[in-house]
Amino acid sequence: MNKLEFHLEGQTALVTGAGRGIGKAIAIGLAESGSEVVLVSRTFSEIEETAAYIQEHTGRRAIALAADVTSREQLEETFREAIVEMGRLDILVNNAGMNIRTPALEVTDEQWETIMQTNLKSAFMASQIAGQHMKDQGGGKIVNISSVGGHTALRTGVVYGSTKAAMIHMTKVLAMEWGKYGIRVNAVGPWYFHTPLTEKLLNDAKYLGEIIERTPLQRVGELHEVVGPVIFLASDAAGYITGQTLLVDGGMSIYGF
C-alpha cells in the first residue's frame, strides 16, 4: 500500500463543532494530512483561533464560519459560503454534539429536544446538504462522530445514547443510498478522551477508576488516537469501506459499562 493513500492533498473538509476538544483536534489533523479545512462552530473566537493556528503551522488554508448547526437556514448558508470560498467539498465530519447527564426518570422534554437537535438532526441536515453537493461533484466522504454510548448502554445517558445509536444507523442508511454516487459514509465511536468537556469527570478519581477498570487498555484515550481513525476513513486507504462504525474505545465495548 502506498502511504500517499492516507494523504488528503487537494481536498477540502468541513468540520462541525471544531472549536474545541475532538473537533478541534480533527480539524488540525485533517490539515496536517493535506486538506484545506472549514471550521464551523457557534463560538467564532474559538474557530478563528484554530483556523489561524492551522494556517500558521501547516500552511493549509483554513476558514472559520460561525453557525448554529441546529438551524437549516444557517447550515445551508454556511455550506454555500464554504463551497464558494474553497471551490469544493470532499469531506464532512459531523462532530458537533453535547450531553446533559440526567437519570432517565428525570429527563425533561427540553433536554430531549436540545440533545436530539444538536446531536442527530444537525448531523442529518449537514449530511443532506453536503450529500447533494457531493453527488453533483461525483463523490465525497462523510465521517460521523458517534460514541461508544451508541453501541453500549451508559448510565445517565439515555438521550445522548439514543442520538448516537441513531447516528450509527443513519450512517448505514446513507451509505446504502449514496454509495452509487461515490459517497462513502462511516462513523467513529469514541469512549473517554481528554477534552475540556470531560475534564471535570476525569478529575474525579473514583469515576476515573471505574472507567479504567472497564477499559482493557487501562487508560483514557488521547486526542490523536481518535484523529487517526477519522483521517483513515476520509482517505483513499478506506476506499472500499462504507456504512461502518469504528469504535475507538480502548476495548471498553467488549464489557459494557
Rank of each mutant, 00 (worst) to 15 (best):
L92T: 06
N95P: 10
K121C: 00
E110Q: 08
L75Q: 08
M86K: 08
V84N: 07
A52V: 00
N94V: 00
A66M: 13
M116F: 11
A104C: 03
T43V: 10
E48G: 14
A66R: 15
G97H: 02
G34H: 03
N94D: 08
R101F: 06
A62N: 15
T114A: 03
E56S: 10
T58Q: 02
L120H: 03
V107F: 05
L92A: 13
D109M: 01
E106C: 02
I115M: 00
T70S: 13
G59W: 05
I115A: 07
E32V: 04
S71I: 04
E81F: 12
S71D: 11
V69I: 13
T102Q: 04
N94E: 09
T114G: 01
L39S: 05
Q74K: 10
Q74Y: 02
V69H: 01
N99Q: 07
Q117D: 14
A52D: 11
E49N: 14
I115T: 09
A62V: 15
R42E: 11
A51G: 02
T58I: 09
A66D: 13
K121Y: 08
R101V: 09
R61H: 10
E32T: 12
E56Q: 15
S45P: 03
A51W: 04
I47M: 08
T43A: 10
R72W: 13
H57V: 14
T78Q: 10
Q55T: 07
E113K: 08
T114M: 04
E106W: 14
W112N: 14
A67E: 09
T118H: 01
M86R: 01
E85I: 01
E85P: 09
G87S: 07
R101I: 05
E85D: 14
T118Y: 01
D90Y: 06
Q117S: 09
R60P: 04
A51F: 02
T50I: 07
V84E: 11
G87E: 10
D68T: 12
R72K: 11
E32F: 04
A67L: 10
L65M: 14
A31F: 14
T58M: 09
Y53S: 10
L105H: 12
A66P: 14
I83T: 03
N94T: 07
V37K: 08
S41M: 03
E48W: 01
E106T: 05
E46Q: 15
F79M: 10
E77Q: 11
L120P: 04
T58H: 08
D68H: 07
G87Y: 07
L39M: 15
I100G: 05
L92P: 02
E48A: 08
A31L: 11
T70I: 02
A66T: 09
T114N: 01
A67V: 02
A82L: 06
I47Q: 08
I28A: 08
W112H: 10
I115R: 00
M86C: 13
A104I: 07
I83H: 11
E32G: 12
L75G: 12
T43K: 14
T108S: 15
F79C: 12
R88F: 03
P103L: 02
E113Y: 08
E56N: 15
I63N: 00
M98F: 04
E110L: 00
E46Y: 11
L89P: 03
I54A: 08
M86N: 06
N119A: 00
E110I: 03
A31G: 07
V93Y: 07
E36A: 00
